[in-house]
């Protein structure tokens, strides 16, 4: 059993003061067979109280509302997660290509998995790219997906600040550069095009020296393999999702699981931006700590992260589209 301490921070700044704002976070790791959320603490620089709720896809959310005339607010979360050590290959059941494709061609299967079988705006592969990767019906679906994982990894170069959350899939496929979201959207689109249910997964990545994914939150894919169930693929690293992947939620695409959504009414016209910091640290033991101790530690970490952000050029900064009036 591995133990991870996760630190999440979002600093929102507004050019003109807020009139009203509603924020929604989807950042808490889910509980499932391989992971368990042991502790979380969520706070903000204005001490605005929060509600725990669910969104339309039943993702567990944290919601805050304020009418304070703020120019800046910082949200901080600490999470302790236990993760089982897993070998994803062990779980794959043996099957034949014939069995596999018969199953996914079945109408009832398609209807049951319609949610993750049909393209959304962000995962709809344009005509001219649809032949980029075609499944080989002489191989099993698992093997096809492994090839797709490899293909995605080779087709794209990981590069930050080339794409944004607003980039279209055509731009992404044309540029062949992007971040984990882009790898994931393309993977989902191609898998779905070939009849395999694929869902976008949002979560945290514990980075050791060999893995990329320094976008603040990581993204990967889960595909439904007949006979086996949902299996995670990380096309950004050409790996199967395993011990280092801490899942928050899944959806049809980024839109369904955006970690932070805000509906913002400003008192005038002006820009706003958000800067994120995320850190995943493996520990031997979770500390038994009082609330005060947590806060003290938070403060130290925030400071360290601020320093990190300036020394590490790969930290991304981007603006999230938000409503203005």
């Amino acid at each position: 059993m591995l133990k991870y301490q996760i630190f999440y921070e979002a600093v929102n700044t507004y050019e003109v003061p807020l009139r009203e704002a509603v924020w929604q976070f989807i950042i808490l790791p889910e509980d499932n067979d391989t992971q368990k959320l042991r502790f979380f603490q969520f706070s903000n620089s204005e001490n605005i109280p929060y509600d725990q709720s669910v969104d339309g896809f039943l993702n567990s959310t944290i919601k805050l509302v304020t009418k304070k005339a703020l120019r800046e607010i910082t949200f901080t979360a600490h999470m302790d997660v236990e993760k089982k050590e897993i070998n994803p290959f062990q779980n794959i059941k043996n099957s034949t290509p014939g069995q596999d494709f018969k199953m996914i061609d079945d109408l009832v299967f398609k209807v049951d998995h319609e949610k993750f079988l049909f393209p959304t705006a962000l995962t709809s592969i344009p005509q001219q790219f649809q032949k980029l990767f075609v499944f080989d019906r002489k191989e099993t679906i698992f093997s096809n997906l492994c090839h797709l994982n490899q293909w995605s990894f080779e087709y794209f170069t990981f590069k930050t600040e080339v794409t944004t959350t607003e980039s279209s899939i055509t731009e992404i496929l044309d540029q062949r550069k992007g971040v984990c979201q882009d790898f994931t959207h393309v993977f989902c689109g191609l898998a779905r095009l070939n009849g395999v249910p694929a869902r976008y997964v949002s979560g945290y990545l514990h980075q050791n020296n060999t893995m990329v994914g320094d976008l603040q939150m990581h993204a990967w894919v889960e595909c439904y393999i007949p006979g086996t169930g949902w299996v995670g693929f990380d096309p950004t690293n050409n790996l199967l999702a395993a011990t280092h992947h801490i899942k928050v939620t899944h959806g049809r695409d980024y839109q369904d699981c955006a970690p932070l959504k805000g509906v913002i009414y400003l008192t005038g016209s002006g820009n706003n931006k958000t800067e994120y910091t995320v850190r995943v640290k493996e520990v031997k033991e979770f500390k038994e700590r009082t609330q005060q101790e947590y806060r003290a530690e938070d403060f130290a970490e925030v400071k360290r992260d601020l320093e990190n952000r300036f020394s590490n050029p790969s930290y991304l900064k981007w603006q999230q589209q938000q409503q203005q009036q």
Binding site: V22, Q24, S53, V54, D55, G56, T61, K63, V65, K261, V263, Q321, Q322, Q323, Q325
Partner: peptide, 18 residues
């Protein structure tokens, strides 16, 4: 609900769908 659907809608209520 701008939180759930069209994010720039000013006609709805954030959180209504939840």
């Amino acid at each position: 609900d701008p939180m759930e659907f069209k994010p720039d809608s000013t006609l709805g209520v954030p959180g209504l769908f939840s």
